[in-house]
């Protein structure tokens, strides 16, 4: 463990850019397409992993980079999901327009609630994020005429993507569609993390008061981070609405926010790839363990979380770093190099 920490230190200390411009995205595509051919019967489940991965990535920006301790990130995801669902039912069945609608809705919820909530900090902030998500949950529950309430919003169907790729029974299109959206999102988020904006976000994460003494308007900065995070969470929600063709209240629930937090911590919050590693591990463990023993699979998730937090504070991604630093090529996950 000490060795892992040390390796992180030197890795972070060595400023370098990936030699190949789109290396992380290319690797993501390679892994994604590999899984597509390896598990043709599990594509619906794999698509869910990709969508959840996007949601956890957006949390990684908000919490991992900027240190905003939200436990109500599902507010943006659920709002995005309902917005995309309603958009498909009432406005247009174009999937890309629906994505945009979901992303915008997630961003709007984030900017409106963030403008108020980010005036507070610490435990107060955490509690208020939970409260906002709970209120939205209850609104969606009560407004059954609009959202379907308890039964969920059903009847969502979308046109073929770009008018060409129709959604099929085996989730092939859904999976590749989710993979494409995830890749583009990853590239954008990685660019943000590596930008001056991202560096400043990590500064605020370390010491917000110090940043103010350097002349930084931390409130404005965090509000922008929170909004971008909400936008991508909304995108994830929209994807799930289009792929599952139904939106449930669970998308706004506290459990959704909590699970995402566990996935982020297990995978590692300091760098973007950690979010994806955590999501994949969490969801596969959940999937497999629930099949083996449907009543006690949470033991395994709980154990995983305890072991990670105690033994690998940097998350599972620090193991990947440790291994790759000992390989001759030293490339994996160097995309977002910041710790």
């Amino acid at each position: 463990m000490a060795a892992v920490g040390l390796e992180n230190a030197t890795a972070a200390a060595r400023p370098q850019r990936p030699a190949i411009p789109f290396l992380p995205e290319v690797m993501l595509a390679a892994l994604g397409i590999g899984a597509f051919f390896a598990f043709p019967n599990d594509l619906a489940f794999l698509a869910r992993i990709l969508i959840t991965g996007l949601f956890v990535l957006s949390l990684s920006l908000v919490l991992g980079q900027a240190g905003i301790p939200t436990l109500g990130h599902s507010a943006s995801m659920g709002t995005g999901a309902y917005a995309a669902g309603l958009f498909a039912i009432h406005v247009s069945q174009d999937p890309l327009a629906g994505l945009l609608a979901g992303g915008l809705a997630g961003g709007v919820i984030a900017v409106v609630t963030g403008a108020l909530l980010l005036r507070t900090a610490h435990l107060t902030f955490v509690m208020l994020t939970i409260a906002v998500a709970q209120i939205l949950y209850e609104i969606a529950n009560q407004a059954a005429w609009l959202t379907g309430g308890d039964n969920g919003l059903s009847g969502i169907s979308v046109d073929p993507i770009l008018g060409v790729f129709g959604f099929d029974l085996y989730s092939r299109t859904s999976y590749l569609y989710a993979l494409a959206v995830l890749m583009v999102s990853y590239f954008i988020l990685r660019t943000i993390v590596d930008s001056p904006f991202g560096l400043t976000s990590r500064g605020i994460h370390s010491d917000p008061e110090r940043m103010r003494a350097l002349g930084c308007n931390t409130y404005r900065h965090l509000l922008i981070v929170f909004t971008i995070g909400g936008l991508f969470a909304g995108l994830a929600g929209a994807l799930s609405a289009q792929v599952a063709q139904v939106v449930g209240l669970a998308s706004l629930s506290f459990g959704t926010s909590g699970d995402a937090l566990v996935m982020l911590i297990v995978g590692g919050s300091a760098r973007l790839p950690g979010a994806l590693v955590g999501t994949v591990v969490f969801m596969i463990v959940e999937h497999v363990a629930a099949t083996v023993n449907p009543y006690h699979w949470l033991f395994i998730i709980g154990g995983l979380l305890i072991v990670t937090v105690l033994v690998l504070p940097g998350g599972l991604i620090s193991v990947v770093d440790w291994v790759s630093a000992r390989m001759p090529w030293r490339t994996f996950g160097r995309g977002a190099r910041h710790g």
Partner: peptide, 18 residues
């Protein structure tokens, strides 16, 4: 009051960007 887990260069860079 420094950003202890960042590099020296990034510490100064944060200030220069401000």
């Amino acid at each position: 009051r420094l950003f202890r887990d960042q590099t020296v260069g990034d510490n100064v860079r944060i200030a220069v960007l401000q």
